[in-house]
Design a protein around this nucleic acid. Structure first.
Lengths: 195, 195
DNA sequence: TGTACATCAGTGAACGCGCGTTCACTGATGTAC
DNA sequence: TGTACATCAGTGAACGCGCGTTCACTGATGTAC
């Protein structure tokens, strides 16, 4: 059993990577077996040598999308913190950056799929719950000291809701909505509560 | 031209009403021509005597869903205000009530469809924008004096985001998320800003 | 080093099903005289 | 008031297409000796 990545594994990764982008751009329904395989440079017949079903691909695609967007987000947060400011402020700016209105393909998988999550089959739905929990943990880890899971829940809800509304409105209205949300989040959750 | 509702109009209304519920329960894709007609007590062949296309039905269904849920929400707000509290507090409680985790069929159409809105054809997408603008206006009208459209945007984003996350998580985790969001919204937006 | 065979990854045609859309037809309602 | 005809709302079969899934087959890679 050699440890180097085998040919099949490389194809598998490519398929999942393509699907991870497609699922955020076009939703669960937008991930078609034939299209994904084609974009990965393969024919659709070989799909079931890689996955038990289309739903199995959706599960892997969500994991991959979550992993990739998390890395990108953390890098954006680090870049922003280098210019000064708290981790929470940097998170808000990175997550609600104007460029994310268009770039759903590389963005947060929860924001891209939230209203569709409850309508999936069991395996996909359970994976969706895991993605939500991960987002909640990520937000909580960036809150100022004293912020607990309750505060993380509100902030996460605001982040994904704002991105969705901004994407639907588009244009200046969308950017204005993001700006208002950034300001409000930083003002209300950026410092320890004066409880 | 008689002013009484004709037979065809009654059928039309029934179809739209059924679709208005289905679109919130199962999303855009869940609204199938045959299923909707069947639930309205008709056969699918007659569909195109009522609508130019399936998308035309989606547009009317969104309008109807928005109208119906707005009425229900305003009634819930009035009932809650009768027990005391501000209009804003009543709105937060009505919109983020635990019962709305399950009852998506009668709930806010924006929360039910938000992440799918950007993926629709032009006519449906434009109608979706209108539904978002209406939600923003509704929230703004319930804000305490001094709250402008920027504050309404943040609150609306938080409302729809929290409902979606609560629905995905479900159970106690979902209810806890709603409770945390209610408390935070009322604390941060329930009174005039001490700017 | 070379030959024979087994395994593996991927191909491409085909199947079954659901769904949006079309259309010829039917039965009921309304109108003309 | 009654008969003949036109209009209207809805029926049900059919079409075309896309999509998830299956499967016999091919060409390349790896192994045995």
């Amino acid at each position: 059993m050699p440890s180097q990545p085998k040919r099949k594994q490389l194809s598998h990764d490519r398929i999942v990577e393509v699907a991870a982008r497609a699922i955020r751009r076009t939703g669960y329904r937008g991930v078609g077996v034939a299209d994904i395989m084609k974009e990965a440079g393969l024919t659709h017949g070989g799909f079931y040598a890689h996955f038990e079903s289309r739903d199995a691909l959706l599960v892997e695609a969500m994991q991959r999308a979550s992993h990739d967007s998390r890395l990108a987000l953390e890098q954006a947060v680090e870049r922003r913190m280098a210019k000064g400011g708290t981790r929470f402020e940097a998170l808000v700016w990175a997550y609600l950056h104007d460029s994310n209105i268009e770039a759903s393909e590389q963005g947060c998988v929860v924001a891209a799929l939230a209203s569709e999550m409850t309508r999936q089959e069991d395996a996909v739905r359970e994976e969706a719950r895991s993605r939500v929990r991960e987002l909640l943990a990520l937000v909580e880890s960036a809150l100022p000291p004293g912020g607990g899971s309750a505060q993380a829940a509100v902030v996460a809800a605001t982040l994904i809701g704002a991105l969705q509304l901004a994407r639907t409105l588009g244009g200046k209205a969308g950017r204005d909505l993001l700006a208002a949300t950034r300001q409000s989040l930083i003002q209300n959750h950026g410092a320890v509560r004066e409880a």
